[in-house]
Design a protein around this nucleic acid. Structure first.
Lengths: 227, 227
DNA sequence: CGGGGCTTTGAGCGCCTTCAATTTGGGTGG
DNA sequence: CCACCCAAATTGAAGGCGCTCAAAGCCCCG
């Protein structure tokens, strides 16, 4: 299955000075296979990153062996700002052929020092990551599997289909991640995720074409699952 | 009960150029009473903030009426970076007499434009907030009430007692928040939080003096609750 | 066409929630 | 200073929901 077409970064540019453009002189683009690591936990934080196409998961493996996915990284997302010294989490590509732009941190910082506009852009980008994580906490904080899965679908629909929150055209989305990934993202078991999806399908809120093509039929039905 | 003595900001300064010092020329200090709001949800993001003393909670009230606490803000924590336009969450002081430094965002940004060093410091501060939120996701992602409450106690012990992770002197910590706050922070019911604390007390991991003075006896016992 | 991983479905159980009652403790006014 | 008061905290009992264990499809890829 090819997901790259769905995941291509074709969002409209919001700022006149796109951080990616200004930084592009420093960028190396890397290509990763399915499941390939981009960096590991405790790896020195020598770079900033940006997903160009594909998708990745940021995660950690806890002492009990359970894998916790901190968040998913989609086209346009910057990542790697978390720490000044070493990364707290590992990052792996999810889909085959994920393209990531890599910026040497020291030189990027120097560039930001010289260009206040870039500095502002970077603050904007980090603020966006903070907002994303805070939204994530809300999803995790939900109780009930239907609420979690519903919120997850709404989040992915918004982040995958060009972030245009208003344009709920009901277009199909193509999930780049497996049920296991969703489970470790929502802190649910795989079985519960599967049951929630079939439940949503049977009540007419979504339509499933294959396992990863999902069309949201009734947004209100998903939003009403708030407990 | 007076908690202000415990919560005074006496952490050692890590950086030569403390962002708070450089920004201090812009700072207004505000004082808030118990439960008083610092800003509300959807309030225009016109300021940056820093907790000087006391404590605050960042939260939202969901459609089902449940209150979700996104994180606690303790002395030294900056907050308000989340969005460029409007705050996604409300912030309230928890303890009586909480002191908060307030910086006008536009002028602070201008100052950051002119002073690359301040720009870096702000990036460091936002990176710290990102790391805090990511750690928070790990705590929320735990399953089991003992694991959540244990992780919460370890987090608070580290953040309240000078962030010196190594110095596990076993000193008492004074929780600034109620059981209800802890419950809404961990997505548990108040009763479960209470039961977990008594359970930890009875197995000798912690000692309770009153309801908010907690002494951690055996750190390893708390860390072993990782599921 | 066969294999193996991913997904779905089923049954029983444990843990957290809910509802309810009691106790503790901090704050206030006499 | 003490008694009162009410919110916060604790404890108990019953039920629901998601997890675990188990097995059967489904689908992609060789």
């Amino acid at each position: 299955m090819h997901v790259s077409s769905q995941l291509r970064d074709d969002r409209p540019t919001k700022h006149r000075h796109d951080p990616g453009d200004v930084l592009s002189s420093l960028a190396m683009t890397m290509r990763y296979g399915h499941g390939q690591e981009i960096y590991t936990q405790d790896h020195p934080a020598e770079h900033w990153y940006r997903v160009v196409s594909g998708a990745a998961r940021r995660f950690t493996v806890q002492a009990n062996g359970r894998r916790q996915i901190v968040d998913f990284l989609l086209p346009g997302d910057f990542f790697g700002f978390a720490s000044r010294n070493a990364h707290l989490f590992a990052v792996e590509a999810i889909v085959e052929g994920t393209i990531v732009a890599v910026y040497p941190r020291e030189r990027a910082e120097a560039l930001a020092d010289a260009d206040p506009h870039l500095g502002r852009d970077i603050r904007t980008v980090t603020a966006a990551e903070i907002a994303r994580l805070q939204t994530r906490i809300l999803i995790l904080g939900r109780i009930g599997s239907l609420g979690k899965v519903s919120a997850f679908l709404l989040e992915m629909a918004e982040r995958l289909s060009g972030r245009t929150h208003a344009s709920r055209t009901g277009e199909e989305i193509l999930l780049p991640m497996s049920r296991y990934d969703i489970a470790d993202y929502l802190t649910l078991s795989v079985e519960t995720v599967s049951r929630a999806l079939t439940s949503l399908k049977q009540c007419g809120a979504i339509r499933l074409a294959g396992t990863r093509r999902i069309k949201i039929i009734r947004y209100d039905a998903l939003e009403d699952n708030d407990e």
